[in-house]
Design a protein around this nucleic acid. Structure first.
Lengths: 224, 224
DNA sequence: AGTATATGATAGTATTACTATTAAATTTGT
DNA sequence: ACAAATTTAATAGTAATACTATCATATACT
């Protein structure tokens, strides 16, 4: 992916970190290697101790950036959705026709992720895989309501609202724009998960893409 | 809910347990109170030690029934889907018309759960809430492929296949019956989750049900 | 050169997720 | 009714996790 703008920073809720990891070299290495390690070990087996060892740094130094690994996950997922939102807005903004706009939106959401050179320390492909396999764990907790109030899911929610609005632009009488928008966003991750681990439960594969499926699903729900 | 048959046992993959909890009083109390406790504390904060304390039994005794809490979750979720499959088959079996059959299927899957007196030690309403909030954690693990091979997700997969087949009966030319079936089953849990914790991301509420939404979604995707 | 700040090293705590052993209670077979 | 088998309870112990606290050292800034 080509760099579109020189200096962009994805804005993440400041309460996800104690000290902004973008502000130092160590911080960036923490983020970079946490992505590699969570991808490799899975979030459950990932620990700050292991991360410290892998970057030749100390466990206690990592705690100076993130309170705990849950907050780190909130940081990574927020960053991901912020990055996605940027692509999303950039790709759809200039399209006038509501149907074409929505079609493009579904494509951007559901297509495979490619590397973005603009953020050298973040491997977006691996991060996307983490989102597919771990995102639910960031909100399937007893603290979800508190954390929601504290704004940790704002970007994701804004994405759903954006899609929902686009749906309404195509069909103002459609009764379930929010549910459909959340189904596309969540369902897209789920279809990728199924192709990886339960291929017998999906029609998506190398040839049939989630984009095909969701485009058909959405446009057949709407009166154009 | 009325008891339909005198003696039904939901068959769960035997590797989920060390000793069949249905075979003893202690076993049943373990299952009964694990549902209450997981519902109350969430799966992450739930431990065998706490469970032991709450049923006045010993931690080590619980380990004689379940290897660990992950296996217990696999047991509970398998039981739930087995129970759901039973309702599902019972409700749809006698319907001849493919569209009506599918309509009924979607209804059974997506409607709120009510208590079933047939299984005194299991609170299906709370268990359903556990499924909504914790089911993903049973498969979002690094061991998912091994455990899938070992058959821990068989009943769930069979459910998806059943729905997929019903979709095909209505429209043989529809290209994504498996994806649509998995979307309905997974998406239904997700819509309930959203109504609980992110009501701004769904149109489902007291008056508009997930059944309404998914019925519309499915039948607009198909050519009848 | 002196001071602030970031990082590293070490140690320590409470909890978790078990395993092992032994004792007590209960059930079962005759 | 009694012995044997099985189940459950009680206790102790281990390695790992998720931290917190303290102090030393390195670097950067004025």
């Amino acid at each position: 992916m080509k760099r579109l703008l020189q200096a962009i920073k994805i804005e993440v809720n400041q309460n996800t970190y104690v000290k902004d990891p973008e502000s130092s070299d160590l911080g960036k290495r923490i983020v970079e290697h946490s992505i590699l390690m969570i991808h490799e070990l899975g979030f459950d087996s990932f620990t700050f101790k292991k991360l410290g060892a892998s970057i030749g740094s100390n466990e206690s130094s990592i705690y100076r950036y993130f309170e705990n690994k849950h907050k780190l996950l909130l940081y990574l997922t927020s960053w991901y959705w912020g990055w996605q939102e940027y692509q999303f807005v950039f790709a759809t903004n200039s399209i006038a026709d509501p149907s074409e706009k929505l079609r493009k939106a579904i494509e951007v959401i559901s297509k495979p992720v490619v590397l973005d050179d603009s953020f050298a320390h973040i491997n977006e492909v691996l991060l996307n895989d983490i989102i597919i396999n771990e995102y639910s764990k960031s909100y399937l907790t007893k603290e979800v309501d508190t954390e929601n109030k504290e704004g940790y899911f704002e970007i994701y929610k804004r994405m759903v609202l954006r899609i929902s609005e686009m749906i309404q632009e195509v069909d103002l009488n459609y009764a379930y724009p929010l549910s459909l928008a959340s189904t596309v966003l969540e369902g897209s991750l789920h279809q990728y998960f199924l192709t990886q681990h339960f291929p017998s439960l999906t029609n998506c594969n190398k040839k049939v893409t989630p984009t095909d499926y969701f485009t058909h699903l959405v446009f057949n729900s709407l009166n154009k």
